[in-house]
Every structure is written in structure tokens, then in C-alpha cells.
């Protein structure tokens, strides 16, 4: 059984149709890269999977259950973790508390277990040293780490990464890549929206291209990137 099975998914805001009858599957432990031009519906797709928006039509099956109408917090508790493209820290709380929120509420752990989980996630993402700082004072790289760290603390089965490498230097994005690789090894499937292609190429086992709210291409990353239609739409060649 696939971990995620999206069937004929559509979402429109007023008269604007953003996702159009999308079909998409994700296997257990797969890393799926998602690319597409601006306005292709990438972030909307994440918002639909994570519960920020409800679909206009279609369904999202997660581990065999249709979660299309479930609340965001319930989906999180089922093991769907996400990061935000523009980091959304709990600015006045400490870095440690930011991660603790996810471990306690998303992970459903007891206080003691949540503390341990949060500490481990901080260690894994290299944020441990900053644990006492107010999250609002972090640099962009550390904010991106925090996004990842919070999502890890819920012990995700499915991790949605929204442009985690965007705005970072090559060295910085490689550092995050290392963390993502480790998370994957711990047994999470990943859907990863990214404009930084070399980051995706290193990890993604499959690549899909969204265009106009539908699927333009789906398959092996190198084959997809060599597809003339993809080149025309996304790479502008």
C-alpha cells in the first residue's frame, strides 16, 4: 500500500483554480522531489496535504484513510510533519520550547519523553547550542533548521519540506541536506518542494513537475529534467 494516494485532487480559491484533478502516489520511505514554476500549485499541494486548506474536490489517502477533511493538528498527530517556506517560528518562545511544542502536541509524548525527543532533534539539526535563545532572533539558516527540527520532533512518517534550501548558500543547503538524509534513514517518506535543483538531485529518488495545478512529468529525476516539455516550462529552454 502506498503511504499517500492523492486522487483527482482540485483546489480553487474563488474563481482561481490552483490544483486541477491531480493524481499522485508516494511509497513508504520514498523521497519525492516536486518542482514547477511559480504558481504551479506546489505550496497549495502541501497546504492540502497538511490540512491548512480543505480540497474543493478529490481525496487524499494517507495510510489508507481519507484525511482530506481532517484538521491540521489531527493530521500532524497521524505523523505528517511539515516545514514552512517562510519560516514561522514561535518567536517569543525559546528554540527548545519551539521543538517541545511539536514533541508534546504533534508527537503526543509524555513530558519526559517529549523532552528527550526535543533534545535529540536539536542535536540532530545542530541547533542544540542555541536551545535557550528566543526563536525570533535566529539567522535564516537556523530558522530553516528550526523548521526541520520541529517537524522531526513529531516523529513524522511523512515529511513535507517546502523550499528548505531556498535563500541559503550552497554550503548551508548541503548542511541541511545531510540532516534530511538522516531523517530519511530514520524511516520517513519525504515530499520536497525545491527550486535548488542540485539539492534535490542528490536525494530525490523520483521527481514530479507541477504545471498549472496538474502533473507535467513524473519519474526518475534525470529523465524528468531531460524531458523537453519540462525544459520548456520550468527551465525556460
Amino acid at each position: 500500500m502506498n503511504l499517500v494516494e492523492i486522487r483527482r485532487l482540485s483546489k480553487s480559491f474563488g474563481g482561481l483554480s490552483v490544483i486541477n484533478g491531480l493524481d499522485l502516489q508516494l511509497g513508504e520511505n520514498e523521497i519525492l522531489g516536486v518542482i514547477g514554476p511559480n504558481g504551479a500549485g506546489k505550496t497549495t499541494l502541501f497546504n492540502l496535504i497538511s490540512g491548512v486548506h480543505a480540497p474543493s474536490e478529490g481525496s487524499i489517502f494517507y495510510r489508507g484513510v481519507d484525511i482530506g477533511r481532517a484538521q491540521a493538528w489531527d493530521r500532524c498527530r497521524l505523523g505528517i510533519g511539515r516545514t514552512f517556506q517562510v519560516p514561522r517560528p514561535y518567536a517569543r518562545m525559546s528554540v527548545y520550547e519551539n521543538v517541545l511544542v511539536a514533541a508534546v502536541h504533534g508527537g503526543g509524548l509524555s513530558s519526559r519523553a517529549a523532552r528527550k525527543e526535543a533534545e535529540q532533534a536539536l542535536d540532530l539539526t545542530g541547533l542544540a547550542r542555541r536551545y535557550a535563545e528566543p526563536a525570533g532572533q535566529l539567522t535564516l539558516l537556523d530558522l530553516k533548521r528550526l523548521e526541520l527540527c520541529r517537524a522531526l520532533a513529531i516523529r513524522p512518517r511523512l515529511l513535507l519540506l517546502d523550499e528548505i534550501a531556498g535563500g541559503l548558500t550552497d554550503a548551508e543547503s548541503l548542511a541541511l541536506l545531510d540532516i534530511v538524509r538522516q531523517v530519511h534513514r530514520r524511516g520517513a517518506a519525504i515530499i520536497w518542494i525545491e527550486h535548488v535543483l542540485h539539492a534535490l538531485r542528490r536525494l530525490a529518488s523520483r521527481l514530479v513537475v507541477l504545471h498549472g495545478g496538474g502533473l507535467l512529468a513524473d519519474g526518475d529525476p534525470e529523465a524528468v529534467l531531460a524531458d523537453p516539455r519540462v525544459k520548456a516550462v520550468y527551465l525556460g529552454e
Binding site: V52, W73, F84, P89, R92, V104, H105, R150
Partner: peptide, 25 residues
């Protein structure tokens, strides 16, 4: 309390609190 931890997260960013499992309702 645990609820208070969630409330404090809501104070700072409601959408991110919901996404991390805080039952906003």
C-alpha cells in the same frame, strides 16, 4: 501545563501551532 505550551505557541503563530499538532479548537 501542556495546554499552556500549545497556547503559547498559538500566541506566537497560530498556523504553525496547528501544523505542529496543537488542537486550536
Amino acid at each position: 501545563s501542556r495546554i499552556g505550551l500549545g497556547l503559547t505557541a498559538m500566541r506566537d503563530n497560530e498556523e504553525a501551532a496547528g501544523a505542529m499538532g496543537v488542537d486550536l479548537r
